[in-house]
Amino acid sequence: MAEQGARLLIADDNKVNRLLMGRSVELLGYRASVAENGRVALAKLREESFDLLLLDIEMPEMDGFGVLEALKQEPALRDLPVIVTSSVEGVENIVRCIELGAEDYLAKPVNQVLLKARLASSLEKKRLRDEQKILLKRFAASEVAQDLQDSGFALGGRRVEASVLFCDIRGFTALSEKQPPEETIELLNIYYTLMFEAIESNGGIVTLMIGDGLMVVFGAPQPLANPALNAVQAAQDMLAIMDQFNLEREAAGKPGIRIGIGIATGEIIAGYAGTQQRATYTCIGDKVNLAARLEAHTKAASCDVLIDADTHHALAGSVPANPLGPVQFKGFSQTMEIYAIAPQG
């Protein structure tokens, strides 16, 4: 059996039923714990990890319906498979259990052959859901994965106040032409590892990766108290990490890597774009375009990090920045006041 060793919780107010059900599931190769009512069952589920709940309906303090309703309200527990085992008759009760999220319904006395089949089926579904969650976390930021779990998937976006950061490696094309493709891929993987550490530790999520280019949003899908400060702190950490990395490259006789970073703050539209079959979490708006222009302008300005006026205002003097005056960027009708973040130390 694929899921032998899984941990099951049995919630039933009848001691004999608990003992008999516990023995049945243990003979099938599972581990069993018991709870004498719904309130105790919920407490155990919140404190310990279980793979499935076998739930009676008629119990004191909190009945099975109450447990199912509570599970639906808790993101950490709503995906737990529940098999109702009850002597309560009536199609309306079965329908209510299923509507409240129960995986299955078995009438008492429970047929052992049917129990074996339903447990195996429910646990296999849970295994597949767990694998999907692992894949989602691997290919999406934890904040996006949490947003999908809390709100579900829907194409479209919402207006949010956030900071957008663009970053890329200067002279990456020329560098790539001077070394084997395998070395370039290895460099990119190291670069991503280092940059993601600085970004994620400051509350940002990477929404786009194109070659050496990264697009990052701070303040969506989860809000931040001061996304501009988070973005600037992430930029400073990124530069500090690259300085350390360059010491290793220079020791190995390789050229140092320089990056340019642009940050803009304000209203953007963030959400899921694409199709029902393939979508990504992204953001659009003038501030996104401005952050990209700022990053590109770091070369002309000979600065590592450039920010817009709204980002500078949000920092409220907490991070030193030098005004560079107004700049006319392509695609913008008015000039933009920009600032260079002063190097640390």
Results as ranks from 00 to 15, higher is better:
V113F: 15
I259G: 09
A141P: 15
N289P: 12
A162K: 03
T335F: 02
L128N: 08
L290D: 03
G266N: 05
F153W: 01
R138A: 04
Y105L: 05
A154V: 11
Q222W: 07
D243L: 08
A231Y: 04
I269E: 11
D147M: 04
I210Q: 12
K15C: 12
M1Y: 13
E48M: 09
A321T: 00
L9H: 11
G331V: 10
P60C: 06
A301F: 02
I241K: 06
Q179P: 11
A174I: 10
S318H: 03
A240R: 01
E69F: 13
N17Y: 04
A225P: 13
Q149A: 15
E47N: 11
L45R: 06
I338A: 01
N226W: 06
A198P: 01
L53Q: 06
E124R: 15
L135D: 15
R293A: 11
P180F: 15
E143N: 10
S122Y: 09
A316S: 08
L194K: 14
D286I: 02
P181W: 14
D79N: 10
I134E: 15
S33W: 05
L175A: 03
I284W: 00
I241M: 10
G331M: 04
L114P: 13
T335E: 00
P75I: 00
D168V: 07
A2L: 06
G203I: 08
V84E: 09
L106D: 04
L45M: 08
A291W: 04
Y105A: 07
L224R: 00
K299G: 09
P75Q: 04
N289R: 01
S121V: 05
A296D: 08
V206R: 14
L9R: 06
V288E: 11
L229D: 07
A2P: 03
L148D: 12
A228V: 02
L80K: 01
V206S: 03
E3A: 14
L324E: 09
R170K: 10
P223F: 00
Y281N: 14
A234N: 04
N111E: 06
A240G: 00
D63I: 03
G262S: 05
P320T: 00
L187R: 05
E177T: 01
I98C: 13
K133E: 15
E99Q: 09
D286S: 04
A251K: 02
K44W: 14
N37Y: 10
V144Y: 13
E200T: 10
P255K: 08
E131R: 03
G5I: 04
A292R: 00
S87W: 04
F65L: 03
V319M: 07
D308C: 01
C303W: 03
L71I: 02
A11H: 03
Q334G: 11
E161K: 00
Q236Y: 03
G5N: 07
